[in-house]
């Protein structure tokens, strides 16, 4: 598997990472190196082996339905770059 420059730009855009044109070639090389390394995994024969979702063979733990959190608008908004009253304020998103 090999990424072309257009795919590198596309991945960056989907992840909202700004990419200078000069960086594309370097990142293309790095990403292709990573992918190539991961691709070695396909050499392992996993025929008939069920997917393993974690080291511990346990299922998801569930919690009871109770309100135990919230009521902390100030803390939630503390890191907001911009706010309006108790709302986050962001550049206008128009659909």
């Amino acid at each position: 598997m090999s990424l072309d420059p257009a795919t590198v730009r596309r991945i960056a855009r989907l992840a909202r990472i700004r990419l200078e044109e000069g960086e594309v070639a370097r990142l293309q090389g790095e990403l292709n190196g990573i992918l190539g390394w991961i691709e070695q995994l396909s050499e392992v024969d996993v025929e008939g082996v069920a997917p393993l979702t974690g080291g511990a063979q346990i299922a998801l733990r569930m919690r009871a339905d109770a309100v135990t959190d919230g009521g902390q608008a100030e803390k939630i908004l503390a890191n907001a770059p911009d706010r309006a009253g108790e709302f986050f304020a962001v550049p206008k998103v128009v659909e």
Partner: peptide
């Protein structure tokens, strides 16, 4: 219909003051 959210203990009631029913998980 539930008292709290799918993955956090913040309340689900409709019409509360903005950002008062938010846990750090939700944010």
């Amino acid at each position: 219909i539930s008292q709290s959210k799918l993955f956090s203990g913040a309340a689900t009631a409709f019409g509360a003051e903005p950002n008062t029913q938010v846990s750090f998980v939700d944010a």
